[in-house]
Amino acid sequence: MMERTFVMVKPDGVQRGLIGEIVSRFEDRGLKLVGAKLMQIDRELAEDHYAEHTDKPFFEDLTDFITSRPVFAMVWEGQDAIAQVRTMMGATDPADSDPGTIRGDFGLDMGRNVVHGSDTEPGSAEREIKLFFEDSELEDYERIDEPWLYE
């Protein structure tokens, strides 16, 4: 099933120069980048994005961090893209992430785990994509290698 998912290189990943490495991993996997932008998240967007955590004690720290420096927001497309991206990112806590995953290779701290990706809850990816991207900012195109990626 072809689907789209949202991924964000968080401020720690941007500051550490990991955008290219992270983009390369998803491209190497065969996922298609259909939207991307470097942006500074404002407080309102951060609160909307993390709305499910509003009542949790870490909400303030989370929103303060995500608004502290630029992020790199992306939309990836591919067969089972949501599950593929979740696997490639690794566990939320880098200490629990396997080597070879993005968080396992680059994350050092739960609060500085380099990337965010849409969870597997129905509608999460669509909701996050709409928060960060207008429809006009997303591209529909066929990659030349698609016949070699999918049956």
Rank of each mutant, 00 (worst) to 15 (best):
M1G: 08
F6S: 03
V7D: 00
M8P: 01
M8F: 08
V9I: 15
V14A: 08
V14H: 04
V14D: 02
G20E: 08
G20I: 14
E21S: 05
V23H: 06
F26H: 06
R29A: 14
L31F: 14
G35S: 15
A36F: 13
K37P: 04
L38R: 07
Q40A: 05
Q40F: 04
I41S: 00
L45D: 03
A46R: 08
H49P: 07
A51P: 01
H53A: 05
H53F: 10
T54G: 07
P57S: 11
P57W: 06
F58P: 02
F58G: 07
F59W: 09
D61W: 11
T63C: 14
D64R: 14
T67W: 10
S68D: 07
R69C: 04
R69W: 13
P70N: 03
F72G: 00
F72K: 00
F72E: 00
M74V: 01
V75L: 03
W76L: 03
G78C: 10
G78D: 06
Q79V: 05
D80L: 11
A81Q: 08
A81Y: 07
A81M: 12
I82W: 02
R86T: 03
M89R: 01
M89H: 02
G90N: 05
A91Q: 12
A91G: 06
T92F: 15
P94L: 11
A95E: 10
D98K: 15
D98F: 14
P99H: 14
T101M: 10
R103L: 12
G104P: 03
F106V: 02
D109N: 09
M110W: 07
R112K: 13
R112G: 01
N113V: 03
N113L: 06
V114H: 00
V114M: 12
D119R: 01
E121A: 13
E121Q: 10
E121Y: 08
P122G: 07
G123T: 07
G123E: 09
S124A: 15
S124E: 14
R127F: 14
I129Y: 04
F132H: 11
F133Y: 10
E134S: 12
E134V: 01
E134N: 12
D135I: 04
S136G: 03
E139Q: 10
D140Y: 08
D140L: 07
R143L: 11
I144G: 02
I144F: 13
E151R: 14
